[in-house]
Write a protein that binds this DNA or RNA. Structure first.
Length: 778
DNA sequence: GAGTTTGAAACT
DNA sequence: CAGTTTCAAACTC
């Protein structure tokens, strides 16, 4: 629709521009801020979201654009693959459009929105790189975002293009344009969706900017997520290309988005003298575009039931290419959740990460419901990510991976199982550290109440940092699956009202669900407040109360091999068991139940844990056992027990898995400190359950490789990090936790070596601030 | 399915 | 911090 007009505008632009320039108004403006162009660039970095309005914005577009391009030129490379002949045109159009916009802006300096948009565009571009880049860059993004009018969307938009579009529409009746587009969307979803989405995004961005800053956080998070996406981008580009090919009429926006990726664009850019411009878009385009698209796509996706997201966050290409591209980006944020966006009609939940969360909201908002805040009041249930959520996430992730979309979500929200623990705070630096837990899962509340948990790449990233091996989020998931079955479990509480750790559901950060046979259950979304309060109380007593009981890490394997000998699994129970009669050969023993060997921290008597005895000597001896156990035994190993467990779990899990999905309980941010720890727990546990359920055998039996590597590795890595991330927490945890007894004592074995390892193994040990560790490891 | 065993969680 | 009680899962029959 816009194109014709735009073309006209473009054609007109030169004259109009000249006119404007000549106009006294223009002169006046220019006199006011001669420096502006330069500022605009800097402003992108420096500005606060709202400051954008400055006059500098008026002029910047051309210069900025070039500048931006230059910046990005370097990186662009990979994504360009997707080529679209359209791009050049689009760019030219965009440029013209920008010019028009600029002119308009100049004429109407008052229109801050437009300025913001333009600024955003510039900023976006600048910021976009970081997205593509690694997390480190991600950090930068927030800043850039600040500069931006705020909306990540703007970022997403190709610097030139996006702003233009936004600007164009906005320029007219700003507010109306969005609505108008929305209407169009309904009418013309196909061709116009993209445009509309972009516009919406623009609005959203503006709104968001006005509203809050979570963007910063979100952006950073998103950046993390984006990192994962990178591989996807190729697909994305393809999708876009298809889009172009498929739909002769690509929304202007869509074209813009694509442009960056298209090689053709590169050429143009090069011609422009900004090969970088091309590049920048590519990279930026992905990250930024991803975000933009994500938002847009989210809106679109909402409409599209067909969307599928890969575990990795890749969206299935089911949708139209356009949507696909967008969706992927969305996926980045929502990954698993996105997987079934259908379900997700609403992203009310405040995900652990503000960014994701917001994105969802914005997207969804555009589509159906809009939550004003990322924190969304809607969040109510504690949709936010929680350590426990991880467990679910793990499930979800697994499910999603393994299973088709239908099942895939199961983990997430099917039955509406909710995790209440979400405490990741976007604010917390910890979040970064925590990443996996909080970040990983984003719970998106469905309109129905069911919440979809989305994993964010961040988790994986974060973990990755810690875990050298944890290259793929999948591993993490596997690990998670491994650990606790809590998520899968159904409680049978009669007196605890499911508000105590006796309740497995509660302990796992999950709301009780139908399958539970509990009595007088208060662990329901309806009683969220009670649940959260109770949780707080419990955490106040023991910060690690909700943390994963079993820590498994590939790292441990590697690091500990020496030590690990002790525990075949290389995983350890945080607290250690206190078994006296079960000889750690039955599920009474948490270590055994978790499939990990006993450690020094265990107080067990007559330990015969097949996964590893607590005594070092035993361990040494056990190594053989151990190996045998792992190799053969994993299967045979715990033999009866293990097998039984597996079977049981499997049976339980398999069914429950579908059922398992539960609403997560959000934790109040206040908990942040704890939750971090807690999250991992839940996750791990839940993950284990689920995984074990399916994998269960695999875990022990199939796990062949060793559970270490497969299962344990994942959870461990996560948990450790989580703990680390707790960061801060380790020390705190000890101090606070009543259990500290068990936890704290780093025994010679573990503790002896590096503090790091010790920290991981011992987890609880006071360790240097987590961040440093993570960074160091990285 | 009922009853017992077990060990964690909670309480004192 | 240690001891006791409570609780629900795990287990047995």
């Amino acid at each position: 629709m816009d194109t014709p007009d735009r073309d006209k505008n473009h054609n007109n632009t030169p004259s109009s521009l000249s006119k404007f320039e000549d106009s006294p108004v223009f002169r006046y403006i220019s006199s006011l801020s001669p420096i502006e162009p330069v500022k605009s660039i800097h402003t992108g970095h420096v500005f606060n979201s709202l400051t954008l309005a400055s006059p500098s914005t008026l002029f910047p577009s051309p210069q900025i654009g070039s500048y931006k391009e230059s910046r990005f030129s370097v990186r662009r490379p990979q994504f360009l693959e997707g080529s679209s002949s359209d791009l050049p045109q689009s760019e030219s159009e965009n440029k013209t459009a920008e010019g028009d916009l600029d002119v308009v802006k100049q004429s109407d300096p008052l229109e801050k929105q437009l300025e913001c948009i333009t600024n955003e565009g510039s900023v976006r571009e600048a910021t976009s790189e970081p997205h593509n880049e690694e997390l480190d860059l991600a950090i930068e993004l927030p800043k850039t975002l600040k500069y931006d009018c705020g909306s990540p969307d703007s970022k997403l938009l190709p610097s030139d293009e996006a702003p233009e579009d936004a600007g164009v529409e906005v320029a007219g009746p700003q507010g109306s344009s969005a609505d108008y587009h929305k209407d169009k969307m309904k009418e013309r979803q196909t061709s116009f969706e993209s445009e509309i989405n972009l516009r919406k995004v623009c609005h959203v961005k503006q709104n968001e900017e006005v509203e809050g800053y979570d963007w910063m956080k979100m952006v950073s998070d998103a950046a993390d997520l984006l990192n994962f996406n990178s591989p996807i981008t190729g697909e994305h580009s393809e999708g876009q290309n298809q889009k172009t090919a498929d739909s002769g009429t690509l929304s202007y926006i869509s074209t813009l988005l694509q442009l960056p990726q298209d090689p053709t664009n590169e050429f143009e850019n090069v011609e422009d003298g900004c090969p970088g411009g091309f590049c920048k878009q590519s990279e930026m385009g992905e990250p930024v575009a991803d975000q933009m698209q994500a938002i847009l796509s989210s809106s679109i996706l909402d409409n599209d039931p067909s969307l599928k997201v890969d575990d990795k966050g890749e969206t299935c290409s089911q949708f139209s290419s356009e949507q696909r591209s967008i969706r992927r980006r969305c996926l980045v944020f929502e990954i698993a959740g996105s997987h079934k966006r259908k379900q997700l009609q609403e992203c009310s939940s405040p995900t652990s990460q503000g960014s994701e969360f917001k994105v969802c909201n914005t997207e969804k908002n555009s589509v159906s419901t809009k939550t004003g805040n990322s924190h969304s009041p809607t969040v109510p249930r504690g949709i936010g990510l929680h350590l426990n959520s991880l467990a679910n996430s793990s499930k979800c992730g697994k499910l999603v991976e393994n299973e088709t979309p239908t099942s895939g979500k199961q983990s997430i929200s099917l039955s509406g199982s909710l995790m209440w623990s979400s405490f990741r705070t976007a604010e917390n630096p910890l979040n970064k550290s925590l990443p996996p837990s909080s970040i990983n899962m984003n719970v998106v509340p469905h309109s129905s109440e069911t919440m979809v948990i989305e994993e964010s790449p961040q988790m994986s990233t974060a973990f990755v940092s810690n875990e050298a091996d944890c290259t793929s989020p999948r591993k993490k998931r596997h690990k998670l699956e491994h650990e606790e079955s809590a998520s899968c479990k159904r409680c049978n509480c009669k007196r605890s009202k499911c508000l105590k750790l006796y309740c497995e559901c509660f302990a796992a950060g999950l709301y009780c669900i139908e399958p539970c046979s509990c009595r007088d259950c208060f662990n329901r979304p309806i009683h969220e407040n009670i649940v959260l309060d109770t949780r707080k109380q419990i955490e106040s007593r023991n910060p690690l109360a909700f943390a994963p009981k079993v820590i498994r890490s590939a790292d441990l394997d590697a690091d500990f091999e020496g030590e690990s000998n002790k525990t075949p699994a290389s995983a350890r129970h945080k607290r250690g068991c206190n078994c006296k009669k079960s000889s750690c050969l039955k599920k009474y023993c948490e270590c055994f139940q978790g499939g990990v060997g006993c450690s020094l921290s265990c107080r067990c008597e007559g330990c015969k844990n097949t996964f590893g005895r607590k005594d070092g000597a035993d361990v040494a001896e056990s190594e053989e056992e151990f190996d045998s156990c792992e190799n053969n035994a994993t299967e045979i190993n715990s033999s009866d027990n293990a097998i039984k467990m597996n079977d049981q779990e499997c049976s339980d899990l398999s069914k429950p898995s579908s059922e398992i999905d539960r609403p997560l309980i959000q934790q109040p941010f206040a908990y942040i400190g704890k939750p971090q720890g807690s999250l991992p727990c839940a996750v791990a546990s839940s993950s284990q359950l689920c995984i074990t359920g399916k994998l269960g055998i695999s875990k022990f039996s199939s796990g062949q490789t060793r559970f270490k590597t497969s299962l344990q590795a994942i959870p461990e890595g996560e948990t450790p990090e989580v703990l680390k991330s707790d960061c801060s927490s380790p020390g705190q945890v000890k101090a606070t936790s009543p259990n500290s007894k068990r936890i704290s004592p780093p025994h010679h074995e573990f503790g002896s070596s590096t503090s790091w390892r010790g920290g991981r193994k011992l987890i609880l040990r006071s360790i240097p601030p987590f961040p440093s560790l993570s960074s160091a490891e990285k």
